[in-house]
Simulated assay, not measured.
Amino acid sequence: MLPSTARSHRQAGFTLVEIAIVLVIIGLLLGGVLKGQSLIDNAKVKNVIQQSTSLQAAVNAYQDKFRALPGDDAQATSHVPGASGNGNGDGQIAEYQLAPQHLALGGFITGSFNGTTDFMTSAQGGAVYIYNDVVGNRGGNGIRLDNLPDTFSEQLDAKLDDGKPDSGGVRATGPYTNNGTIVVRTAVFF
């Protein structure tokens, strides 16, 4: 039998089981935070895709109704009263500042655009244009999304096209690196 002083004096500390439980809890919390951020990013990508699809539908509806492209419409001031200007009617939306105003005044999108300095923004915060531009070695009319994280551009491309930045109907100004770089321009051509 041990003396009474030896029995009452035990070493204090954590067992390996207690430490393992704490580490598992910390791991679950970190996993939940990372998964939550992933869900937020996925929601933003879906919002950008939905915005692009909606704008393309609005352009098509405008073209069906007025037989002209928004921004490029040579008779916009008569088609959509209040428009600040007409396009040149050449089939190329170089008048990108007029495009959202024509669509909004025609009731195809919501918002108020002055036709000169106002522009649309994406869920990520970058500018959005309806524009005739060259992106990724392809030119034409399309929806241009500026300053998206490369993962957003890649997901947009994969869901709407072929997932490659330099081919198909969705193009980007740079490769998809998945390291958080910003793609200056991503275009969805129509």
Results as ranks from 00 to 15, higher is better:
Gly71Pro: 12
Met1Ala: 02
Gly140Pro: 06
Gly91Ile: 06
Thr77Phe: 05
Asn141Ile: 05
Arg10Gly: 03
Ala6Tyr: 15
Asn114Trp: 11
Tyr176Ile: 02
Val17Phe: 09
Asp157Tyr: 02
Val17Ala: 08
Ser167Cys: 07
Gly91Gln: 12
Gly168Gln: 05
Ala61Pro: 04
Thr151Ile: 12
Gly87Ser: 03
Gly85His: 10
Ile182Ala: 02
His9Glu: 14
Asn42Ala: 13
Gly140Cys: 06
Leu39Tyr: 15
Leu2Asn: 15
Thr177Pro: 04
Ala172Gln: 03
Arg7Ile: 11
Asp150Pro: 01
Gln97Arg: 15
Leu103Ile: 09
Leu145Phe: 07
Ile182Tyr: 04
Leu30Arg: 14
Gly13Gln: 09
Gly115Gln: 09
Thr173His: 02
Val184Ala: 08
Ile182Trp: 05
Pro149His: 07
Leu23Ala: 09
Asn137Asp: 11
Asp118Pro: 09
Gly31Val: 08
Ser78His: 14
Val45Ala: 03
Phe119Pro: 10
Gly140Leu: 03
Ile109Thr: 09
Thr121Asp: 06
Gln92Thr: 07
Glu18Gln: 14
Ala58Tyr: 11
Gly163Lys: 05
Phe190Ser: 03
Asp73Glu: 08
Ala104Lys: 11
Gly87Ile: 00
Ile130Leu: 03
Arg138Phe: 02
Asp166Val: 01
Leu29Val: 14
Ser122Val: 02
Asn42Cys: 06
Ala20Thr: 14
Gly32Asp: 04
Gly111His: 13
Asn114Thr: 13
Gly87Glu: 00
Val128Leu: 00
Ala83His: 09
Ile25Val: 14
Gln37Glu: 06
Leu2Tyr: 14
Arg138Thr: 06
Asn141His: 05
Gly139Val: 02
Tyr62Leu: 00
Leu98Gly: 00
Arg7Gln: 09
Val22Pro: 03
Thr173Met: 06
Tyr96Leu: 03
